[in-house]
Computed example of a mutant assay.
Amino acid sequence: MFTVFVVEDDPTMKEIIVETLKKWHFNGTDVSDFDHIVQAFIECKPHLVLLDINLPAYDGYYWCQKLREISKVPIIFISSRDTRMDKIMAMNMGGDDFIQKPIDMDILMAKINALLRRTYSYPDHQPRVVEYKGVILNLKDDRLIYNDRQIELTKNEFRILYMLMKQAGEVISRDKIMRALWEDESFVDDNTLTVNVVRLRKKLAAIGLAALIKTKKGQGYLLQ
């Protein structure tokens, strides 16, 4: 079943869209916290996004740009705005289509079905990210995103943090981390691992995440 992520501020319109999606046997998931749309998107793992332009705090253009940093999932803008510039902006920000309010639900569903058919004849449109307490690790380009700030990680730094995020809350031994790095044909000895962790911590501290990685003496590392 396809999942459609609905980002719409009008409660009545949102309810109508979600109910229509259900009638067409789609899983319609909406968002209520408009300050954390990216996190909700990651948790939802949708196949398509319906995104209104007029939203609280930041508009749909802003959120489209943020979603495009981590995903190629198709995005349809829905809006009462009808100027030529609005439509151009929607496409330039990464939108795939635009439908004007008041919405004809038959037309909306036709657009959704057409876009899903076109998109999912190609692989790899799911978001490739790992998230932990607002920290987003982009698996496509080894970038970490936190509170709209980004840092580039080396391959070893990325692999270390990826292991810790995949098993967040669990202690990962130094031996296990070194074995994982060796299996990826990037062998490091014990001292090199320490250097990589120190460098990673410095990068995290620069964006306000100094306490993210905790050392368990004699055991290894974990995220807290």
Score class of each variant (00 low, 15 high):
residue 4 V to I: 14
residue 10 D to A: 03
residue 10 D to G: 00
residue 14 K to Y: 00
residue 15 E to Y: 02
residue 19 E to D: 12
residue 19 E to K: 10
residue 20 T to G: 05
residue 22 K to H: 09
residue 26 F to W: 02
residue 27 N to S: 11
residue 28 G to Y: 00
residue 29 T to P: 04
residue 29 T to Q: 15
residue 39 Q to W: 12
residue 41 F to N: 09
residue 49 V to C: 09
residue 49 V to Q: 11
residue 56 P to G: 13
residue 58 Y to K: 15
residue 58 Y to D: 10
residue 62 Y to P: 04
residue 66 K to M: 14
residue 67 L to E: 03
residue 69 E to I: 00
residue 69 E to A: 07
residue 76 I to D: 04
residue 76 I to G: 08
residue 79 S to E: 10
residue 79 S to F: 04
residue 80 S to R: 09
residue 82 D to Q: 03
residue 83 T to I: 00
residue 83 T to N: 06
residue 84 R to F: 07
residue 87 K to W: 00
residue 89 M to H: 06
residue 90 A to F: 02
residue 91 M to E: 07
residue 92 N to K: 05
residue 95 G to D: 11
residue 95 G to T: 14
residue 98 F to R: 10
residue 99 I to S: 02
residue 99 I to L: 15
residue 101 K to I: 08
residue 102 P to Q: 07
residue 102 P to N: 05
residue 105 M to N: 03
residue 105 M to R: 03
residue 107 I to P: 01
residue 110 A to I: 02
residue 110 A to H: 11
residue 113 N to R: 10
residue 113 N to C: 06
residue 114 A to K: 14
residue 115 L to W: 09
residue 121 S to M: 06
residue 122 Y to P: 00
residue 123 P to D: 10
residue 124 D to P: 01
residue 125 H to T: 03
residue 125 H to V: 01
residue 127 P to K: 00
residue 127 P to C: 04
residue 135 V to N: 13
residue 136 I to R: 02
residue 139 L to P: 06
residue 139 L to A: 09
residue 141 D to V: 00
residue 142 D to F: 05
residue 146 Y to W: 04
residue 148 D to F: 05
residue 148 D to H: 07
residue 156 N to L: 06
residue 156 N to Y: 06
residue 159 R to E: 15
residue 160 I to A: 11
residue 160 I to Y: 10
residue 160 I to N: 03
residue 161 L to Y: 05
residue 161 L to W: 08
residue 163 M to F: 09
residue 164 L to Y: 08
residue 164 L to Q: 07
residue 165 M to C: 08
residue 166 K to N: 07
residue 167 Q to P: 01
residue 169 G to R: 13
residue 172 I to Y: 00
residue 175 D to S: 15
residue 176 K to Y: 12
residue 177 I to E: 10
residue 178 M to P: 01
residue 178 M to E: 12
residue 178 M to Q: 13
residue 181 L to T: 12
residue 186 S to M: 13
residue 186 S to C: 11
residue 187 F to R: 13
residue 187 F to L: 07
residue 191 N to C: 10
residue 192 T to L: 08
residue 193 L to T: 15
residue 194 T to Y: 15
residue 196 N to T: 00
residue 200 L to F: 04
residue 201 R to S: 13
residue 201 R to L: 01
residue 205 A to N: 05
residue 206 A to W: 02
residue 206 A to I: 00
residue 207 I to E: 07
residue 208 G to H: 14
residue 210 A to L: 11
residue 220 G to L: 12
residue 221 Y to K: 03
residue 221 Y to T: 04
residue 221 Y to H: 13
residue 222 L to C: 11
residue 222 L to R: 02
residue 223 L to W: 14
